[in-house]
């Protein structure tokens, strides 16, 4: 069976869903179910007494077989991310943590140095650490060295929908990685997800593209199909490209013996 292995945990689905930006909890739950995702991200937030319905933990726990992967969004450095991770584990009961450290709200690019430090500390504490990272092949190996369970390089900026702008760098990461490579951020349409899987990513994490779609539930199902198609294609072995045309039909010369084509349309006496 083709399983995604993260630490000691295995999953049949290679589509991870983010739970942000959905218009309401009901749509989010239906989208998760339509996507077949077994792993979803959540964010920590101060409890709001005026809006207790904002709490997602209750609704998410109603879906069987779902594992939560809290993120450390909001953390600007390793120390804050480690603190957020410990709080999140207490609440989720899940060992998974998505390390997400982006100090600049304009571009939300991950801080490589702080991400490496947080990953080192949290991996030593037994977390299944999934760092969101720039698409940097050198950093990917450094994160692997300190014990991450997967690397999650960005395809393009969070919420930008610019797709796999980093495709060439992703290929370098995939070629050398000993841990799963999961593209996180920037995917816009199922085509992006299929392409990510075709170039050899082990999974994709999608949030905005589904949450803000006209019909999030239908889009979740579409992404699930794309991820499966891309994965199957990768496993099937994709043909290599050629600079010259290579015929698919036999180029025999029997037509040349029949003379010019226009003659075949003339009435014969």
């Amino acid at each position: 069976m083709d399983l995604l292995k993260l630490g000691q945990h295995t999953f049949t689905s290679r589509l991870i869903l983010g739970t942000g930006k959905f218009s309401n909890a009901e749509t989010m739950l239906k989208a998760i179910q339509a996507s077949g995702a077994q792993l979803v991200t959540v964010a920590l937030r101060r409890f709001n007494r005026e809006r207790p319905s904002d709490d997602l933990l209750g609704p998410l726990l109603t879906i069987k077989g779902l594992t939560l992967m809290p993120n450390t969004s909001g953390a600007c450095n390793a120390q804050e991310a480690v603190k957020a991770a410990r709080i999140a584990r207490e609440l989720s009961g899940s060992p998974f943590i998505k390390v997400e450290i982006h100090p600049n709200p304009h571009h939300l690019m991950p801080d490589a140095i702080e991400t490496l430090e947080a990953t080192r500390i949290l991996a030593a504490e037994g977390f299944v650490v999934m760092p969101y990272m720039p698409a940097d092949p050198v950093l990917a190996k450094r994160l692997e060295d300190v014990g991450c369970a997967a690397v999650m390089p960005l395809g393009s900026g969070i919420g930008t929908g610019h797709g796999l702008a980093t495709a060439d760098l992703l290929k370098l990461i995939i070629r050398d990685s000993r841990v799963p490579v999961i593209v996180d951020a920037g995917l816009r349409s199922p085509a992006d997800a299929a392409l990510a899987m075709e170039i050899g990513c082990d999974a994709v994490l999608v949030n905005s593209a589904i949450a803000v779609a006209g019909d999030p539930v239908a889009m979740a199902a579409a992404f699930a199909l794309a991820v499966q198609a891309g994965r199957s294609a990768r496993l099937a072995g994709i043909m290599s490209q050629s600079e010259e045309a290579v015929p698919t039909s036999p180029l025999t010369l029997f037509l040349a013996d029949a003379g010019p084509i226009h003659q075949t349309n003339q009435k014969t006496v």
Binding site: T19, G20, V42, A43, F47, L68, S73, L91
Partner: peptide
């Protein structure tokens, strides 16, 4: 005292 819960996030 911080009282925290899970909200939507990617």
């Amino acid at each position: 005292i911080e009282i925290l819960t899970f909200a939507g996030g990617g």
